[in-house]
Simulated assay, not measured.
Amino acid sequence: MARERLSSLFFAVLGLSATSWGGLALMAQLERRYVVRRQMLTQEGFADLVAIAWAVPGPVACNVAIQLGYVLRGRAGALVSGLASVLPFFLAMGALALAYLHHALPAVLNPAVLPRFRVVLACLIAVTLWRQSRSLLKTRTAQTVAGIATAMLWVAPTPMVFVGVLLAAFAYGWLTAPRDDARAPLPSLSRGEWAVIAFYGVSLAIFALVPLDAVESRVVDTLRQAGASLSLFGGGFSAFPVLRSLFVGGAHGVSADTFNTAFTLSAMVPGPLLNVVPFLGLLGAGALGAVLATFAFFVPTGVLAVFAQRWLAILRQSPRFEHALGLLRAATTAFLADAVLRVVPNIPLNALDIGLALISLFVLGRLKLPVYWLYLGVAVTAFAA
């Protein structure tokens, strides 16, 4: 396999991340550069990276970029590629957060723009929910798991419920899976790997058990966010209820309206949909909060993706694992459904917004155009009015 220079890897991923709206777009560009054009990775090898990224929590596209860097240049490549994939949207969302804090953003935007943007955002989440449901909820069992999870999230949208729903779905899938899976020997774990697993367990427990109002230490807050990142399966909008439980109220003091605004603006910026994290981190705890939140949400899952490469061949031999992971992913549709149910009631019911919603559903669902074209159309229309 040809070796990529670290500087070339950094600037290539940086440029691709800066011009990719959404995780799927970034993965497609990475594949085009390193599989089709440069032929530094085979099609099967890249498919393995994508499979691992979908099997672990966190932002799928960034996890693919981190793994790609690891395959090409080892740990240094993973660090360089991961940093390059995050830097563009970190700077962009940080700038938007500063503009929002200093009231420059509301002054620039027409008062009618943000509410219209939220209509488009609600339609984008709804289309994502529809596509994911069609892909994941193909059996009666998966539909039942998704229905129960949605009801539980609506009644009690707390971190303990988030973690409990995912663990219960995975455990149920594991216990009800076919029992004829191959018994491949598991690889031995080093002390460092056991330490990483212990860190994940502690941070996930802190996220599930420590209430937001009880968090006073920045270290505990960062560990709580790292634990939250381990509960994020199924794409960026699945993070809506999780991030809401982390940043709205409590020590961070982010209002529900500001939180919805942050998610609305995130679709305007390149990168995965978790690009909202630096915005919320900066609003909650300044520049250091933005850095720590971004580190907590992107580093642990990236390390886990690299760590999981050793297990891919074994997991492929386990129908039990595949069945359990399938039901876990079915449960993640509940997080998208919860996002829709929380956003839609805040949209005023008038003829203009209903018309915009119908157009947005057609453009996003049928024509499959990027959402920023809708945002641009809404902004131009508002300024012209």
Results as ranks from 00 to 15, higher is better:
residue 207 F to S: 12
residue 362 F to S: 05
residue 35 V to T: 02
residue 100 Y to R: 14
residue 358 L to W: 15
residue 84 A to D: 12
residue 359 I to H: 06
residue 24 L to A: 15
residue 106 P to N: 09
residue 122 A to G: 05
residue 48 D to H: 05
residue 134 R to G: 14
residue 22 G to P: 09
residue 270 P to H: 10
residue 54 W to Q: 11
residue 225 Q to Y: 14
residue 94 G to F: 04
residue 187 P to I: 13
residue 78 A to T: 03
residue 143 Q to A: 07
residue 206 I to H: 04
residue 103 H to K: 10
residue 23 G to F: 06
residue 49 L to F: 12
residue 182 A to E: 12
residue 161 V to W: 04
residue 51 A to M: 05
residue 178 P to F: 04
residue 197 I to W: 00
residue 24 L to T: 15
residue 287 A to G: 05
residue 115 P to M: 10
residue 321 F to I: 01
residue 376 L to P: 12
residue 179 R to L: 09
residue 113 V to L: 12
residue 67 Q to M: 13
residue 2 A to T: 05
residue 276 V to S: 01
residue 138 K to A: 04
residue 355 G to H: 11
residue 309 Q to L: 09
residue 97 A to V: 01
residue 275 N to G: 05
residue 87 L to G: 00
residue 51 A to I: 01
residue 364 L to G: 09
residue 114 L to N: 02
residue 256 A to M: 06
residue 15 G to T: 04
residue 296 A to F: 07
residue 93 M to W: 06
residue 7 S to L: 12
residue 265 L to H: 05
residue 103 H to S: 15
residue 20 S to M: 13
residue 314 I to T: 10
residue 359 I to A: 08
residue 258 T to R: 07
residue 76 A to C: 07
residue 84 A to Q: 05
residue 225 Q to R: 10
residue 196 V to Y: 15
residue 160 M to W: 14
residue 278 P to I: 12
residue 247 F to P: 03
residue 280 L to Y: 02
residue 322 E to C: 01
residue 236 G to V: 03
residue 86 V to R: 07
residue 118 R to Y: 11
residue 204 L to V: 14
residue 178 P to M: 11
residue 330 A to F: 03
residue 158 T to Q: 12
residue 126 A to M: 08
residue 127 V to Y: 07
residue 368 K to Y: 08
residue 28 A to W: 09
residue 82 G to A: 11
residue 28 A to Y: 13
residue 49 L to T: 03
residue 277 V to Y: 02
residue 364 L to R: 08
residue 203 S to Q: 06
residue 140 R to A: 15
residue 323 H to Q: 03
